[in-house]
Design a protein around this nucleic acid. Structure first.
Length: 325
DNA sequence: ATAGAGAGACCTGGCTAGTG
DNA sequence: CACTAGCCAGGTCTCTCTAT
């Protein structure tokens, strides 16, 4: 059966089998992703009001210029929140406008659909325009699923670059200059390092390696390929910030043990550092007070505390250290 | 200059299994 | 039931390279 007919089935409340479902999904992917509808909507944004990138640059520039005196932990928390809210503003518009703009897409000069994906698209438009309420609802639900599929990925992407940019803004607000005092995407063995200090072209010139993450849990392990054993390594995490979905507690024991061994410094906000120390202290005490103690858990708990105590630093400490390198 | 392909990095958000 | 640890798919974004 054609995918447009499958959609007809669904709109009428009928079921389709799994093979048909795969075919349908394939065409919906062509409609929404890659060079599809979502990309077209994104292009519309650049028209009035300026693009997301322009607005974000302006926002960060204002932080650099106006907040040089703000406590670093608060600086990054505020900046990240603002940057993330700006991103959500753009992305939400892409989601909430999907029903209103979907049919207009076909008038775009670069409209790419053909064959069965095109037929499916036309079927969607037809139901949106002529279908009765219940059929429309069923179709709109599906549009939402694909739109959100795109947006959830865009959020990750924006968040990732946002974190790096916020840290750059912090460095700049303290008078450090890009491509002099620091540089980004330094290429060495392993993957590129987000930021190194100072500007370097060869590993011998690097005084500190810095990896940045917004929400760090098990993915923390990925940062080790950006850092270099034996060198001064900073792992900057926005864990605990309101724009982050994770906290220090989400970093597993084994990963922390590795970080202790490799002497990697953990940079977080002051608030999160204090909270994390308290939490792990309580957890360790709770384990020790059990009648049947888990020896491993106690050891890991002690390692975690030691790491937080000796190897975690606040953004204030971080700035102080790197500006003196 | 511009378009397109390819590669690498980004991380959210939800799931399963295990423990108490 | 409540909570935690561990796990990971996959579109977007950006950059680089190549072709026109």
């Amino acid at each position: 059966m054609k995918t447009s007919e499958l959609l007809e089935q669904i709109s009428n409340g009928n079921r389709i089998n799994s093979k048909e479902d795969i075919a349908l999904k394939n065409d919906f992917k062509k409609i929404f992703y890659g060079n599809g509808y979502m990309a077209w909507r994104k292009k519309q944004e650049t028209g009035s009001g300026g693009s997301f990138n322009v607005e974000r640059d302006l926002l960060l520039k204002s932080y650099v210029q106006e907040r040089a005196a703000q406590v670093a932990s608060e600086f990054v928390e505020d900046a990240l929140q603002d940057v993330y809210e700006l991103a959500l503003q753009h992305l939400n518009a892409r989601l909430y406008g999907v029903v209103d703009n979907f049919a207009a897409w076909k008038h775009d000069s670069g409209f790419p659909l053909k064959d069965s994906a095109l037929e499916l698209y036309n079927k969607v438009c037809d139901i949106l325009e002529n279908g009765d309420e219940i059929r429309k609802h069923r179709i709109i639900l599906i549009l939402g699923v694909y739109a959100e599929g795109s947006l959830s990925q865009a959020r990750k992407s924006f968040a990732g670059s946002g974190g790096e940019l916020v840290l750059e803004a912090l460095l700049q607000s303290r008078g450090m200059k890009k491509n002099i005092d620091y540089c980004t995407q330094f290429t060495s063995e392993g993957s590129d390092t987000d930021i190194v200090i100072p500007k370097a072209t060869k590993p011998e010139e690097v005084k500190a390696y810095i990896a940045v993450q917004i929400s760090s849990n098990d993915r923390t392990r990925l940062t080790t390929s950006e850092l270099v054993p034996g060198q001064r390594n900073y792992f900057v995490s926005f864990n605990g910030c309101s724009a982050s979905s994770k906290t220090t507690d989400d970093i597993g024991d084994e990963i922390i043990a590795k970080y202790v061994k490799e002497d990697i410094l953990y940079v977080v906000t002051e608030k999160e550092r204090i909270r994390a120390i308290n939490t792990s202290l309580k957890r360790l005490e709770a384990e020790k007070n059990k009648s049947k103690q888990d020896r491993n858990k106690i050891l890991f708990g002690e390692t975690r505390l030691k790491w937080l105590d000796e190897k975690s630093i606040t953004f204030e400490d971080f700035i102080e250290q790197v500006s003196r390198l």
